[in-house]
Design a protein around this nucleic acid. Structure first.
Lengths: 143, 143
DNA sequence: GTACGTGCAAAGGTTTTGCATTACA
DNA sequence: TGTAATGCAAAACCTTTGCACGTAC
């Protein structure tokens, strides 16, 4: 946690609670769900503080803001390049770690400069896939 | 335009105006910008009508709702699979037509079912790229 | 001690909804 | 004519902002 002080963050109890919640979190939570989780253990926490902390973490490059969910932003503490699958059944967002060769044509290489890329897969997450392919059970949305 | 009646759409003047505006449109407009454009020619048009028409068109598969812009939805009348580049300079969204091999590992193939995929490139659009690579001019955001 | 974070409430932007009126088919 | 679309206003969300107060360093 000291690494956050090193990048110029004042470590208040509220921020520590948010940082602990985010550490290793693979749920790609929204501001609201971070707030709900942290508010349980820390009833004075306000939603504005969550937004303001996320804004600072984003500036410092310590979280990624994901634009995958129509209607709200999601946050990802994993900041190295990776891709995502959006489950069409349960709406969960899960990490996909493969690297892909996304080669532009020669024409396109002249026209554009590419800085980075991100792949969104739409399909079934492991849990919903299991339900669907399991012969014994009726298919039903997970979560 | 008759194809829309065929899919069960009542063709009101408002809807025709929206459909004309969307036809061949490559700007990936938001509801608000569709409203602004159509309202000029059609002053009685209301924003609620734009939303309701977009909702029907989406259901019928005649437009795609894009979740690329944090804070608002964008709409794309091109419904065949293609990818997008988000210009980090001018924020324009432009189509990228290459097809990519996005092969999952054997492990992943067992875990997931993939229905479709979409690649977001971040970089410079043709206009901003031209400005940047042109030696004679100062770089400046386009649009 | 000071600069910055917190919490509250209000405001801003996008999208949805309810309802009376209007118009397509 | 009947069903569905329109337009208006209000409400529902998500996110940002202003400001008085509190706290990490």
């Amino acid at each position: 946690m000291e690494k956050y002080r090193d990048i110029g963050l004042k470590l208040t109890p509220q921020r520590l609670a948010i940082l602990h919640y985010l550490e290793g979190n693979k749920d790609h939570p929204s501001a609201e769900s971070i707030y709900r989780a942290v508010h349980k253990k820390f009833p004075t926490m306000s939603l504005a503080t969550v937004y303001s902390t996320l804004s600072v973490l984003k500036e410092k490059g310590s979280v990624l803001e994901l634009t995958l969910d129509p209607g709200k932003k999601r946050y990802d503490p994993k900041t190295t390049l990776h891709n995502h699958l959006i489950c069409v059944s349960c709406k969960r967002i899960v990490d996909i770690h493969g690297e892909y060769k996304l080669d532009l044509t020669e024409n396109e290489k002249q026209e554009y400069t590419i800085i980075k890329s991100h792949v969104e897969f739409y399909g079934l997450c492991p849990e919903c896939n299991k339900i669907k392919t399991s012969p014994a059970k009726e298919a039903s949305p997970c979560a």
